[in-house]
């Protein structure tokens, strides 16, 4: 090759990226693993010259820490709720969009809109919609000014108003709000990918089904879903990865550094939230162990997904 004499030139092109990657990507991988094995490593104490013994202390501590196991539970339950709901809804919308001609482009644009938003900013809009204004005490003395638009709509259908995100709200109500918001936020990407997949399915399959006069539902389950399965697997995997990193949407709804209603601000804390909380308290040892556990979970879930798709997905 012409350029083999000038190998050093290639490294010149690569130099900026490699230097930055070494400092901000490679070193963090090594160092975070190292910190996770140093007992109760604390950045402030380390700066003061303290030394830390090596062992699994951080992992044991984190896994037996109720604060952490709660965040693990919250993270998993949010994933389990939001990933299937958003995937099924996105699939229905994509199939419907693919079957119409007029208005298709307009509707496609509308469905993509939630993607180009700031998850904190729109979280505040959801908070405003679910918020009860006044003293939501849950007692007869409370002085409510406005129940919020969602409660107003619910009451229109004859149901009781709820405390969704205020003090006295239940865990289930909080989860409901977060599920609605996360699904709303997750739909655009899934619809985009699935619609792209649908549009690339060869029309011959549908023509063959037409000749055999296959019923509509059978066409959906035997042609559309199997041929779309790589795309479905893709949105499920990315959905789980995103779901395990859920954090800022909760901040958006509940407030700066708040992961729950005012009377229980840690209630919906997630694994990422736990990592940042520990980091801000200079407890890097715990934060590192939690981050590595998070990475481990993401790896395992991704491999399970890939294993399931290997059996189910038709490429």
């Amino acid at each position: 090759m012409v350029e083999s004499k000038h190998q050093w030139k290639a490294w010149l092109y690569l130099a900026p990226a490699i230097v930055l990657l070494l400092v901000f990507t490679v070193w963090p991988i090594v160092n975070t693993v190292r910190l996770s094995f140093l007992e109760n490593y604390n950045g402030m104490k380390a700066a003061g010259g303290a030394t830390f013994s090596i062992g699994l202390w951080n992992y044991e501590k984190v896994l037996s820490y109720p604060k952490f196991t709660d965040t693990l539970f919250n993270t998993i339950i949010l994933c389990v709720l939001t990933v299937p709901i958003s995937t099924i809804l996105a699939l229905l919308i994509a199939v419907a969009l693919n079957s119409i001609k007029p208005l298709q482009k307009t509707l496609q644009t509308i469905f993509f809109l939630p993607y180009v938003t700031n998850s904190i900013a729109i979280g505040m809009v959801f908070a405003a919609m679910f918020n009860v204004i006044g003293s939501a005490l849950g007692t007869p003395q409370e002085n409510i000014e406005s129940y919020g638009i969602i409660n107003n709509i619910i009451m229109l259908f004859g149901f009781d108003h709820q405390s969704w995100i205020n003090s006295t709200s239940t865990y289930e109500a909080n989860l409901f709000v977060m599920t609605v918001y996360i699904v709303w936020n997750a739909l655009p990407f899934k619809i985009l990918v699935l619609l792209g997949g649908l549009q690339s399915i060869n029309k011959q399959y549908y023509d063959a089904a037409k000749i055999d006069s296959t019923p509509r539902r059978r066409v959906f389950t035997r042609i559309t879903v199997p041929l779309l399965s790589p795309m479905i697997a893709y949105v499920v995997i990315t959905g789980f990865i995103g779901g395990f990193k859920e954090y800022s949407s909760i901040i958006g709804v509940f407030g700066d550094k708040k992961m729950g209603p005012p009377d229980d601000p840690d209630r919906l804390n997630t694994m990422v939230g736990f990592i940042y909380d520990s980091l801000e308290k200079n407890r890097e040892g715990l934060a590192s162990a939690a981050a590595i556990i998070l990475f481990g979970i993401i790896l395992v879930v991704t491999f399970i997904n890939l294993w399931v798709s290997k059996k189910r997905v038709h490429y």
Binding site: L21, V23, F24, T25, W27, P28, I29, N31, T32, L35, G43, I241, F244, K245, V272, I275, Y276, L279, E284, A287, S288, A291, I292, L294, F295, I298, L299, T302
Partner: peptide, 17 residues
């Protein structure tokens, strides 16, 4: 391969760096 790793893992050390 580094794309697999969640960003939070980098944040801890980068904060120190």
């Amino acid at each position: 391969a580094t794309m697999m790793i969640p960003g939070e893992l980098f944040t801890i050390t980068n904060y120190q760096t």
